[in-house]
């Protein structure tokens, strides 16, 4: 015979695991939040940027001089 099947749902426990006493256990050292860039790195980047700007200005000046002479 054709039976109408119905689905049953599982029963979950109503009580979880409780802690009666505080037992000493191992703990992990919590991670430290480190900056993405250190101060030294930022300073180095600034110096590099300044040097690049200086070089670019010199090149532009030289180009202008060559055009004038030609």
């Amino acid at each position: 015979m054709a039976e109408v099947k119905s689905m049953f749902r599982e029963v979950l426990p109503k009580q979880g695991q409780l802690s009666v006493e505080d037992v000493t256990t191992m703990v992990l050292c919590k991670p430290k939040l480190l900056p993405l860039k250190s101060l030294t790195l930022e300073r180095l980047e600034k110096m590099q940027q300044t040097a690049q700007d200086t070089v670019r200005q010199q090149e532009m000046a030289e180009k202008d001089n060559r055009q004038i002479t030609h």
């Binding site: 979950l12 426990p13 979880g16 695991q17 409780l18 802690s19 256990t25 191992m26 703990v27």
Partner: peptide
């Protein structure tokens, strides 16, 4: 977070998430 190695807390978290 305070006790990552405690199995009871993990059990309870699993039970609540199932619910």
């Amino acid at each position: 977070y305070l006790a990552p190695f405690d199995w009871k807390i993990l059990y309870n978290l699993g039970l609540v998430h199932l619910t």
